[in-house]
Amino acid sequence: MTLPVFFGCAFIAFGPAFALYLFTIATDPLRVIFLIAGKANEGLKSINPEDTAPSMRLLAYVSGLGFGIMSGVFSFVNILSNSLGPGTVGIHGDSPQFFLNSAFMTLVIIMLHVFWGVVFFDGCEKNKWYILLTVLLTHLVVSTQTFLSPHYEVTLVAAYIIMVLMGVWAFYVAGGSCRTLKFCLLCQDKDFLLYNQRSR
């Protein structure tokens, strides 16, 4: 039973991050460098030499994903290795869902780092300090929830609510709208490209 727990929790925690890497970053070597470096100042103009705003948004997304993966690995790798045994979780009255809850919390932390990165870069670019303060406060709230370790339902629900709100905020900061979301969901690439050209 230990191997299914190990692989199941690993896929829950790192599956979405791996999918984001595979579909949005792995095809471009410069993005891979940004992901590994976390921060990079040189080479922004090589992504889009005529417009710096999309470059900063792309850097925010890629570096946020890089920080999220690093944070997830450091916080979850020891727990994941313990899932291989020996021992039984919950034998002394602890929650038997410890590994599963930790995997879902790691997933939230990784995705939040992506959203925090996009929103934080936007706040820095526009010199809006309340945005930076909001990112720092939500980071503090999610981090301090780990002290409520026996009450996994409360911490996970609160963390997922914050993740959804920050995700919506990051989506609009990155230039998304209801119209572009509709084009994306309906796989209407031609209409999406025409809409982008007209909006410029």
Rank of each mutant, 00 (worst) to 15 (best):
V62K: 00
V62S: 04
L65D: 00
F67W: 08
G68L: 05
I69P: 07
I69L: 09
V73P: 08
F74Q: 10
F74R: 08
V77N: 13
V77F: 15
N78S: 15
N78T: 14
S81T: 13
L84G: 02
G85S: 00
P86L: 04
G87L: 00
I91E: 11
I91F: 09
H92L: 15
G93L: 03
P96A: 03
P96D: 06
F99E: 04
F99T: 02
L100M: 12
A103F: 00
F104A: 08
M105R: 03
L107E: 10
I110N: 03
L112H: 01
H113D: 12
H113F: 07
V114R: 00
F115S: 12
F115V: 07
F115Q: 03
F121T: 14
G123P: 08
E125S: 15
E125M: 09
K126Y: 03
K126D: 11
W129M: 12
W129N: 11
W129Q: 12
Y130G: 04
I131P: 10
I131K: 04
L136R: 03
L136M: 10
L137N: 06
V141Q: 01
V142L: 07
T146D: 05
L148G: 05
S149R: 06
Y152R: 07
E153K: 08
V157P: 04
V157A: 13
A158Q: 04
A158T: 12
A159R: 05
A159Y: 01
Y160P: 04
I161R: 02
I162R: 01
I162T: 08
M163A: 14
V164N: 01
V164C: 03
V164S: 05
G167L: 01
G167D: 01
V168W: 10
V168E: 07
V173E: 10
G176A: 06
G176K: 00
S177V: 07
S177P: 09
T180C: 09
K182A: 11
F183N: 06
C184V: 11
C184T: 12
L185V: 05
C187N: 14
C187A: 15
Q188I: 03
K190W: 11
L194A: 14
N196R: 13
Q197M: 11
R198I: 07
R198P: 08
R198Y: 09
